[in-house]
């Protein structure tokens, strides 16, 4: 196990390094300059500004410098925010995104599991159809449409929640979290339903039934736990997706999150923020995938064994 984890951590660093390298060179191939008024400056004036930000050096040198700084945990300074360090910016913007992402994920997955279980246990009844309907809605309606809808009805018309902005404490997070929860809800409910139905028809359930276990015991103790395994696999990408994919939701609810900065930095060639946010998101995804793999092994010992053999 320890050997397996050490190896995995080593691979994680390699992955991270490759992502950093690829992002750096792709980003340098972007058209345009991070210097916003470059077209207004004479070549000598532009050279002064470029020298200040180290943009006058050849790209391999810039790359080496960036990687050295990165190794020391320094993500550099933003171009668009003339005075802000990228690390500070990410930390400042991370909070709201994390809150929304966590709430959205917890809410979506919990409700999804419930819906999925109801659907599986009441297969081919109105409950099942109802849950399928909700799942299809959740998958097919983009979250921003849902967000706009929630904003208009629950906030503007019925005034139950703030329309937007990050100013009314927890209340501000309710609508965006619900909007974010729809995707995970749909995914989780579909997974649980399929797995539960499969598990419920397997031999050991029949055995349990014949031994006289009651329906509740069968559903939770035997069926549900086994049905959970595939869900854990998709949980990682779902979590990362929520954090990165919340940019539209963040814009609609005017929330000072990180997703919103990600897009803006690309549009304005803000090299250091592009790098900073991409690396942060990749690190997050890499760690989550790792955790999920470890978790997976804990839930299902067969997997840990095969991993340990390496």
């Amino acid at each position: 196990m320890t050997k397996y984890i050490t190896r995995r951590i080593f691979y994680m660093f390699i992955t991270f390094f490759l992502i950093a390298t690829a992002t750096f060179f792709l980003m340098k191939a972007l058209p345009g300059s991070p210097i916003s008024s470059a077209s207004k400056l004479s070549p000598t004036q532009l050279a002064v500004v470029e020298a200040k930000y180290g943009l006058d050096q050849p790209i391999p040198v810039q790359y080496a410098k960036y990687m050295l700084n990165l190794a020391q945990g320094d993500l550099g300074n933003s171009f668009q925010f003339k005075n802000a360090s990228v690390t500070d910016l990410i930390i400042d913007r991370l909070g709201p995104s994390l809150i929304l992402g966590t709430q959205g994920l917890v809410l979506g997955v919990t409700l999804g599991i419930l819906l999925g279980m109801i659907a599986a246990l009441r297969q081919n009844t109105i409950w099942d159809y109802g849950s399928t309907f909700v799942a299809i809605i959740g998958i097919s309606i983009p979250s921003f449409v849902f967000a706009t809808f929630l904003q208009y009805w629950l906030a503007v018309q019925w005034e139950l929640f703030p329309v937007a902005l990050w100013k009314d404490g927890w209340m501000s997070s309710v609508l965006p979290s619900i909007a974010l929860a729809m995707g995970p809800l749909a995914t989780a409910s579909r997974f649980i339903r399929t797995e539960m139905i499969e598990v419920l028809s397997s031999d050991y359930i029949t055995l349990a039934k014949s031994k006289g276990a009651n329906g509740f015991e069968i559903a939770f103790k035997h069926a549900f736990r086994n049905a959970l395994i595939p869900l854990v696999t998709v949980l990682g990408p779902l979590a990362a997706g929520l954090l990165t994919g919340s940019l539209v939701i963040e814009q609609i609810f005017a929330i000072p999150g990180i997703g919103e900065q990600f897009v803006k930095s690309i549009m304005s060639n803000d090299f250091s923020i592009i790098m900073g946010t991409t690396l942060f998101f990749s690190a997050f995804l890499i760690v989550v995938i790792f955790l999920v793999d470890v978790l997976y092994g804990i839930i299902d010992p067969r997997i840990r064994l095969s991993g340990g053999k390496d």
Binding site: T148, V163, L165, E260
Partner: peptide
């Protein structure tokens, strides 16, 4: 001041008087 990038959101906040 608040930074709001979505016109729809801006209009909603205007409509409800914020």
């Amino acid at each position: 001041y608040d930074v709001i990038k979505e016109t729809a959101t801006a209009v909603n906040l205007y409509t409800n008087g914020e």
